[in-house]
Structure formats: C-alpha cells, structure tokens
Nucleic acid binder design. Sequence first.
RNA 1: GGCGGCGUAGCUCAGUUGGUUAGAGCACUCGGCUCAUAAUCGAGUUGUCGCCGGUUCAAAUCCGGCCGCCGCUACCA
Length: 503
Amino acid sequence: MARPFYITTPIYYVNDAPHIGHAYTTVNCDAVARWHRLLGDDVFFLTGTDEHGLKIQRAAEAVGLTPLEMADRTSERFVEAWRELDISNDDFIRTSEPRHYTAVQEFLGRIRDNGHIELDSYEGMYCVSCEDYYTEAQAPDGMCPIHHRPLETLAEENYFFRLSRFEQPLLDWYEAHPDFVQPVTKRNEALGFIKQGLQDISITRTSIDWGVPVPWDDRHVFYVWYDALINYATAAGFGTDPERFERLWPVVQHVIGKEIIRFHCVWWPAMLMAAGLEPPKEVHVHGWLLVGGEKMSKTKLNHIAPSELVADFGVDPYRYHFLRDVAFGNDGDFSYEGMVQRYNTDLANNLGNLLSRVATVVGKKSGGVGPAPSPDSPLAAVAAAVYADAADAWERIVPSEALEATWRLIRETNAHLEVNEPWKAEPGPEDDAVLGDALEVLRIVAILASPAMPATAREIWSRIGLPGAPEDQRLPEAAVWGGYPGGLPVEKGDPLFPRMNPS
RNA sequence: GGCGGCGUAGCUCAGUUGGUUAGAGCACUCGGCUCAUAAUCGAGUUGUCGCCGGUUCAAAUCCGGCCGCCGCUACCA
C-alpha cells in the first residue's frame, strides 16, 4: 500500500476574508501535496475554516445573522478562493460540522478521563463592556485598553487543562525529535517558551454559546482554540473512523504561520499526549508576507486579495511567485514591481521563451516532429543533479529551493542551445539530438514544475506532443533522462507567458 | 529585565568540523547571437563579510566587548 502523507494548513478564522497571506500557506501546502502525489504517496491534504468563538458570535449579532449563517458566508469565500487558485485539497473541514463536534467531545472527554481536565477557577481582570479578560501585559494600568475604564477582578469557574504536567514530557519529546519543529529558530522559540514553565489553561467558557458544548457540563462550551486544533484529528477520522485515523496519525505534518507557534508546538502536542495519542510528525513554520514592510491588517488597509493578482498575472504565475520568491520560514516583502520582474525573468524569458525557441527550430529543422534526446547528453547529468536537489527541497518543504533548482536546468538548456546553435546546423542526426535534448528537458521541467504550475505543466506537456499529463507521471522514474520518445508533433502555439510591462 | 536571532556585493540572500583569488540570482556594463516573447549566451564591475579587541601559522567562520535591528516572554482567531 502507498505511503500515507498527510499535510494540513491551519484552519482560517472566518472573521476575515481570504488574503494573500492565507493563500501563501495554502499554495505551499498544495504544491507539496502535489509533489507527494507524483511520488505515488497516498496524499491527504486538508484545509478548512475555524468558526467558533466570541468574535464570530458578535459579528453575527451585529448584522442580524446566526453565527452559523455568518460562518457559512465567509467559509464559502475561502472555498472559492482555493478553487480559483487551483488548490487540490482532499477535504475542507469546518469546525461547525457534526463530525467535528463528535471528535472534539470524544477527544477532550478522553483527556478528562485521563485526569488532565479539572474544574477550577479562573481569576482575571475583566472588562464588562468587552466581556473579556485582559492580562497584565495588555492592561498594565488596570484599565481596559479599548474602553479606558477600570477592569474588575473576576473569578469564573472553568475547566482547566493541566498543561503544566506536560512540561517535561514536551521537553523529552523535543529532545527525541530534533525535526519536530522547523526551521530550528522556531523550534528554539517554542522550546524557550516551554522552558520558562507552563501554566494550566482554562479551556471552557460559560459566557459564549457559539462553540462545541462540553458533554459533561452543558453550561460550558469549549474555548475556540481548544476545538480548533482538534480539526486535524477530526478530518483524519478521529471519533468517527478509527481505522482511517490509525493510518493517518501521526504521519501528519502541519504547516503554520509563525503567529500560532505556541498553539501548535506546545498546546497541541500536550493535548495529544494527554489524550494518549502521539504528537504530529512535524510542524513547519513560515514567516509572514509583508506589504511595504508591514504586516497586512484591516486597519492599515493593505490587504491584498489573491484574485486581484490572479487577474493581472494568471493563476500559475501567482502560485509560482509566492512559492519561489519567499524563502520558506522567513518573512517576505511583497511588491507588485518585484512580481512583474520575476514573472518576466523566470517565466517569460527563461521558461516560456525556451519552449518557444525550441518549438520554432523543431518546426524549421525537423519538420515539426520532435526528435529523441541523446542518451549521453551533457544535460543528462544536470537533470539528475537538479532532480536530486529539487526532491530534497520538496521533502523539506522548501519550495523556493526546489524551484530554484528546477530553473537551473532551464538556464543550462538555454546555454546548451547557444553552444550548439541548432538553428544554423544542417538537419540531421546531430541537430536532432540537440533539439531532442531540449525537448527532454522540457518534459522533465514540466514534471518538476507541475506542483507549482499544474496548468502550465500540462500545456508544455501537450505542446511537445506527449500523451497524458505530467500529474500522471511517477517519480523518481519519470525524471530519468531519456523519457522523451521522439517522433511526436511539437506545436509552437502562443507564448506561455507574454512579457509584462515593468512599469 | 529574561531567553533567542540577525547585521556578507545596489537588491534578496547562500556560505559552521576556521585554510587557496568570499559566492548565487536579480540589477548594471561590455561583447556575441539573431532560433526565440527586444528573449538568449559569454565576460566583467561593485563587498573594511556591523564596529573594536583577542585566540591562531590562518577567521566572514571561534572567544570577549560595543553599536544597530528583530522575535518570543500564555489563554490575541
């Protein structure tokens, strides 16, 4: 049976419309999922929406909707955004679904049965107007930062998760699993947090209705984070399909933004341990997409919706840009000018033009029939090295490196053409070999680039006359030099990526 | 305050068991080519490797100090 590969995006909170930051995470996961499908893995790629909590309840009240109606609206926008971006998720989970309620109640019930959830009292500084608690860091002067009124000290009976008991188990887990959190700087951050000591966390609320009911005490609902994290287990079949869950857990790999490290790298593994389950295999942390050097936010009005850029660049160039331009793990500063530049350089000039020039010369010198490559072409070694590097980078979830490696092959091929000048040579076996080499590179590039640009890869594939589609190929065999059979019709067609005006 | 990280060509960055002339891509300059989307190919320019001091035959790479920047420091979806 194929190796299971389970990858997740965070579930996105439905108080915000999809922007390029959400899309960044999702496209990265999608490309990795597609890569693993090429490897023949049994891929399960999950995304979805997080819908409970006070913010949604209030936002719904403000416009006269039920919380679920409110969530329906925004959740649908995420579904549409991912459809537009050619995201190949195998499931889309919503925390308002019955299957999730089942899983959450089972999961937290198990933790309670294991003695790690207990009733206790939470005391904090409370603002009546906000109906919310503030920490000392948030309100050092004891005044509500929003209403500027004195906070009251209030105690509430809540159920607590005994997170403090998992300090040592977590440290042991990190010790035994050096790759648990990547990159290592984020791992240090999580570790530092654990080492400073962990406090128990109140995980239920009585002041909210919009949440998963606590099965053993109907006055409470679970605090939103506590139900949200469990989505990863829900979708894997926890509580509903034990056999499936057995297969998908704990091979799961989470991809998250750096703002939610604590939840995924501390709370979540502790919760799993408390429930008698294993922590996830790996958590991959990426940075933020900045605009003008600043984080996107509603108040700064610097949100960019993916569709705005897709309208100008197209879906595949959009995907390519964010996969290639930002080193995974670092913050990346987005600029429209930079995107145009990379589009022109990488896509129009290097890749698009390579296909274009090869197709033209094949038309002139080989009668439009693509010749087979030479078995001992110097490009064969380049292709092999590039494949090794790309495969390694995809495995580590560093798409920028995988694509950088792939483009190395494109550049080498342009140079190879320059040296051999097939457009000058007399038609014949030698000329055919040079053109065949270039076509073979295009075949391999189509496969290697298909996780990033699925539609483009299919287009290249069909223009060089190959039957089927790049997605149907199986790695690593399909990347071996010599797969292009020759004797296939090569079609020039319109430019894949018309150059854009830099201004 | 505590813990952690960063500061390398105009830009984005790579570069740890310390060792020949410090690298890549982009940008720029010159040249070639004209099959190709004024694309492509080749050559080349630019760096006190934040500053000061130390260890060493030898440091971007180790140690100390300093300057500048940043992240985390719990119930923010």
